[in-house]
Design a protein around this nucleic acid. Structure first.
Lengths: 232, 232
DNA sequence: ATGGCTCGTTGTGCTGCCACAACATCGGAG
DNA sequence: CTCCGATGTTGTGGCAGCACAACGAGCCAT
């Protein structure tokens, strides 16, 4: 039932961009395609790192849970990105949980192929580490944000990040490309769903966003940027 | 005046551990040793990445500054660690400023040697990326911390991190191994020097720490761990 | 010694955010 | 159609932590 995957799926993604068709064929033949329903875990915090993944379609939230039971969203993965790449950083257990936000199609490779990929395929390692660098930068920005910005600015930043990462242009604005609840946003910004709700209501009154159930459309991005204090 | 550097300086550091003496000799011969006074910048945010560094002695704070002028301490570098390794992550400009906390001795290499190091020296890349992984993990912890913990817990976490990274055992406790002000701690935790001062005074009354000018000694680490909520 | 600086402490008032509760609304399952 | 759970909204109160100000103490230079 797994229909043969087409090489063209990978040719435009950074880690594979410099590779030849036969090389990409090899890589695809070694992959296991997987389908996930919304709201399930692709891998879980604390489990041993056994595979690495590429998200073909859908969206993934990377979540960390505290001993106290609070959870925060560390990262969003967009289609075309590698994730679960603990292998690249010498990790033996996953430091976080990857949860699907909607229907997801994922390619998986066993971990022991990682070393081979990096040495055999020109540019694979470089491009991958570039992504790591970007994530590092984003985390850094979020720390600065959390440390210096007020709640309203943090929420504005979070929504801006969401639309730059997953945004879809629709008439009347830019829409967040994945289902998202107030609770999700409060998990991203370290505040409460109540406060998020109030902020979104306020912004809707001001004509900056349209907020529906599990969906947010930004109608005046520039004003949101102003509110955010322009960090990220 | 640069006396010849001894190979033994590097043999025990992770990135060089698997290398032979002649290889280490090559690496040392390519290095420029540099001395820095306390409180000066080794490199600055926004400048092009031209060199990478190894801290031989002293301590370095990696600092980010916001458009609003607030600054927060992203990272501390301990002796023996590489820093400014933007090259490894495809960065072309430094994303932060590296500021010396005390007298520092640093080795520097021009950036174009990076690629050669990673391919010529077995284990250099792997070990380096392991460090990157650890820093990534630490940043993640700090985000979780900032999002979920109260100020008191964050400050406790910050001090625990300081003593695990730079701690020196002295009679009566563990002392932070670098000069540190309340302002520094508030920059690490996103609070104010006033609040830090109050917390430290309180802990000193409770016999958990000894706090002097630019120096902190933890006398009851276990109680600080309890206060911290045990995240990092 | 002595001035000047940086660093630390502490009191007071204020406010932004959280906690909780109660209600409204939506969507799916049977 | 109806019920139920998940999601979102809104009002009220309380408190943690910030802002500001004023003072004290150590360190350095000349």
């Amino acid at each position: 039932m797994l229909k043969k995957l087409d090489e063209s799926l990978l040719t435009d993604l950074p880690p594979f961009r410099r590779l030849s068709r036969p090389q990409i064929r090899e890589i695809l033949d070694a992959a296991t395609p997987l389908r996930f329903d919304p709201g399930v875990a692709v891998f879980s915090e604390g489990l041993p790192v056994e595979r690495f993944f590429l998200l073909m379609d859908g969206h993934i939230r990377v979540i960390r849970t505290t001993p106290g039971g609070d959870q925060i969203i560390a990262l969003h993965i967009a289609p075309g990105q590698l994730f679960g790449i603990g292998a690249a950083l010498g990790k033996t257990i996953y430091p976080a949980t990857a949860m699907t936000a909607d229907d997801c199609l994922v390619l998986a490779w066993p971990n022991q192929l990682w070393a081979g990929f990096t040495e055999r395929y020109e540019g694979f390692a470089t491009e991958t580490y570039k992504v790591v660098g970007e994530r590092l930068g984003e985390l850094n920005n979020r720390i600065v944000e959390m440390a210096t910005q007020a709640v309203e600015q943090r929420v504005a930043c979070a929504i801006l990040r969401l639309i730059t990462q997953t945004g879809r242009k629709v008439d009347g604005g830019i829409e967040v490309g994945l289902p998202i609840t107030r609770q999700n946003i409060s998990d991203m910004t370290g505040t409460t769903p109540y406060t998020v709700s109030r902020l979104l209501s306020g912004w809707e009154r001001d004509g900056i966003v349209l907020s529906e159930r599990r969906k947010i459309t930004v109608t005046a991005p520039h004003r949101l940027v102003v509110l955010s204090g322009a960090i990220a």
